[in-house]
């Protein structure tokens, strides 16, 4: 069967689709892409459904070879990675028709954490509880519930029709203003903080200090509680800004637990969650308060822009050949990633 064989995978490469819904009450998080904007763009560049299963590639990069009888159409974007086709730099975002035996590699660039590789027709990995999304902490979805590693085969749809032309992906939403504040809707436990603490949160700069698919830890001035930090557990949504006893914000991301017991000052707007996901440790961010309706309209505008812009794939007239760019050294980063257990 046609597949992509992983030759090397750094830490954090998983299969994701739109997410696993309907099981949060049983403790099963939706998972899904960290940066839904880039994920969706890669799928739409191929004419896929917006939530088709694709590869989410983390900071360790990935290298794969096409093992199929016919050419395969792929698209990648997000996170400012450097993509190489057979050792030649292609760019950060493109749609390519790859012949059987061709090798494609992603290496981290100067910014960003996640890039997405979509394939025409979507990946055909097994469906668990209605989704292909990997939820590695629970060993669910993806390939055997785990991170991708060398030797894995990602099954493709048997026949996807003619290969699309090679094209660059040029989309303004993939290059958002890095200094724009992340929009936040207050609640549900904003009343656990006094007005001074809330004002501080919305005026001070914060810095990402660590992160994974579950949560990003931020550092900044202490955000003090007015009534302690134990609440009786209640629901948690994507983007929740949880403030525990250390008074530091923890923003819950795609693999967040469905419930939690720390006060949540607010939620990062869905329109901005991908932008936060791409902030590397050390990068600064600010927050701006908006109402739920403003956040809803912002999301709608962004989704509409992505869905209705038809010309974000620009024909690739000539192969970009850059003298002096080293070919990817697979050994250095594939070795590190392969140790990660399923």
């Amino acid at each position: 069967m046609a597949h992509l064989r992983i030759l090397g995978a750094g830490p954090g490469a998983t299969i994701q689709d739109g997410g696993r819904f309907g099981y949060r009450r049983y403790g099963v998080t939706p998972a899904g892409p960290m940066d839904w904007v880039a994920f969706r763009t890669a799928n739409l560049a191929l004419g896929n459904a917006a939530d088709a299963a694709a590869v989410e590639i983390g900071p360790g990069g990935l290298e794969l070879i096409v093992e199929a009888d016919a050419p395969v159409s792929l698209a990648f974007c997000g996170g400012g990675f450097a993509w190489f086709r057979g050792g030649q730099l292609v760019g950060a975002a493109a749609r390519l028709c790859l012949a059987p035996g061709e090798i494609l590699a992603a290496r981290p660039g100067v910014a960003g954490i996640f890039t997405y590789l979509a394939v025409a027709g979507g990946l055909r990995t097994p469906i668990e509880l209605g989704s292909r999304a990997t939820y590695a902490r629970a060993g669910m979805g993806g390939l055997n519930g785990g991170l991708l590693r060398a030797g894995d085969d990602l099954p493709l749809e048997a026949s996807t029709g003619p290969c699309a032309d090679d094209a660059m992906i040029v989309a303004p939403w993939l290059r958002p203003d890095p200094d724009a504040a992340l929009r936040v809707v207050l609640g549900p436990q904003d009343d656990y903080f006094d007005p001074g603490a809330r004002d501080l949160f919305f005026s001070a700069p914060f810095r990402v200090v660590a992160g994974d698919r579950m949560a990003y830890r931020l550092d900044g001035p202490p955000v003090a509680h007015s009534r302690g930090y134990n609440i009786v557990s209640d629901g948690v949504a994507l983007g929740a800004i949880q403030i525990a006893g250390d008074k530091k914000p923890l923003v819950l991301m795609a693999d967040h637990p469905p419930t939690g017991g720390y006060p949540k000052l607010g939620h990062v707007a869905r329109a901005d969650i991908g932008r936060l996901a791409q902030l590397r440790p050390g990068r600064a961010c600010r927050f701006a308060e908006v109402g739920a309706e403003t956040a809803r309209r912002a999301l709608q505008r962004l989704e509409d822009e992505i869905a209705t812009t038809t010309n974000f794939c620009r024909p690739l007239r000539r192969q970009v050949a850059l003298a002096g760019v080293a070919t990817p050294d697979r050994t250095a980063w594939s070795a590190a990633g392969n140790r990660h257990p399923r």
């Binding site: 809707v185 609640g187 629901g235 948690v236 994507l238 939620h267 869905r270 739920a292 309706e293 956040a295």
Partner: peptide
């Protein structure tokens, strides 16, 4: 109580 634009408590 709103929990972002996509959830309500």
């Amino acid at each position: 109580l709103p929990a972002g634009e996509s959830a309500l408590v």
